[in-house]
Simulated scan of single mutants.
Amino acid sequence: MATPPRPRRPTRDLRFAGRIAGFGTTSGTRVVLGLWESSPFGRFADAMIEDARGHRILFAPTDEVAAFIAATYAFDEVRVLPVTRRRIEGGLALDATALSVRLRVGPVSPLGRVLRSVPPRLATHPAWLRLIDPVARTFQPGVHTAGSAGGGRREFYGVTVARTIVWAEARLDGTDLGAFAPLDPPVRFGFASAPRQPHLVDVVTTIREPV
């Protein structure tokens, strides 16, 4: 007698809509910024840093946000402190007491023009992102659109617009992190990295978690 299939565990989808910026520096440090306009935690910004030794730091604005992100990704250090972002001429700035980032944004990239050809509703749907993940990781090493996250979660990255970052600078604990450079090697916070070529992307991140 055939064994009946196990019932699927119920899940819920948590949706984060905003922008992600990623770039590297000549010191070997890589910087990834999350600039969220809407989320289960409201509007907020966060920063993830990995240095040349592989030490990973999360900067988050509240204990609640820090706990959720740290349960989804992997860090060696978590700092909870005010994280503010603002527009500056030609780009944006982020400050988190010990961390200061400035970046200048260029035009929509060739990747961005390809992404624009996909209707946003499709481009951010988990089923589509699961389907195209093999293509994404082939053309952009380290990049994934779907994968496993911490706490039994699944995660989906749906990018709708991609612009190049043409310049950036960052200081951490009073130290200049070096000149602007590609994001290389890929970061190791989770299953996916930002692209090697520095980008600012409009993204909807869906986190599917068991309930």
Rank of each mutant, 00 (worst) to 15 (best):
G28A: 11
G190S: 05
H199K: 10
R116W: 15
D184Q: 07
M1S: 13
R102Y: 10
V83R: 00
Q197T: 14
D202G: 04
T72L: 11
V204H: 03
L58A: 15
A170S: 04
E77S: 13
L131F: 14
T84A: 09
R12Y: 15
P210W: 05
P110Y: 06
L92K: 04
R12F: 10
G42L: 01
A136P: 06
P120V: 10
E169R: 14
D173N: 13
A52W: 10
P198I: 02
R196Q: 10
A136G: 14
R130Q: 11
Y157C: 01
G34F: 02
T62P: 01
I69H: 01
M48G: 06
W167K: 04
D76M: 02
S148W: 07
F16D: 00
A179Y: 12
P198E: 01
V101Q: 02
L35D: 05
V204W: 02
A52I: 13
G28H: 09
A60F: 00
P40I: 11
P107E: 13
V203N: 01
I207D: 00
P61Y: 05
I20N: 00
A66K: 00
D202M: 01
P141K: 13
H144G: 06
R8A: 14
I132C: 11
R130E: 11
D13L: 14
R19C: 09
L99D: 03
P40A: 06
S27M: 08
H125T: 11
S193K: 02
D176M: 05
A168R: 01
L177P: 14
S109A: 03
T26E: 09
A21Y: 09
T26C: 11
D202A: 08
A168K: 04
G90E: 03
T138V: 07
P134T: 06
G151V: 05
R86S: 09
I20M: 01
G112V: 08
G91C: 15
D76Q: 05
T3L: 10
W128R: 04
V65L: 02
P10E: 12
D176N: 10
A93K: 02
L122K: 06
L131R: 13
V161Q: 13
A192W: 05
M1H: 07
F59Q: 03
G18W: 01
A70W: 00
L35A: 11
V32M: 04
L94Y: 11
E50Y: 12
F59N: 04
E155G: 13
D63L: 04
W36E: 00
V80R: 03
A71S: 12
D95I: 15
E89Y: 03
R113A: 06
E50Q: 09
P107S: 11
F191A: 15
F59E: 02
I207S: 03
T124L: 02
W167Y: 13
V31F: 05
S38E: 04
V114T: 07
G150V: 05
R87Y: 08
P134H: 06
E37W: 15
A98H: 08
G112F: 14
P141Y: 15
F156V: 03
V118G: 04
A71E: 08
S27R: 15
R137F: 08
R208W: 12
R79F: 07
V187G: 02
I132S: 15
T175Y: 14
R208C: 10
R6M: 15
A127S: 15
F156L: 12
A93R: 07
R53Q: 14
F41S: 03
V108R: 10
F139I: 14
G150T: 12
Q140N: 14
A136Y: 15
I69C: 01
G34S: 05
A98P: 15
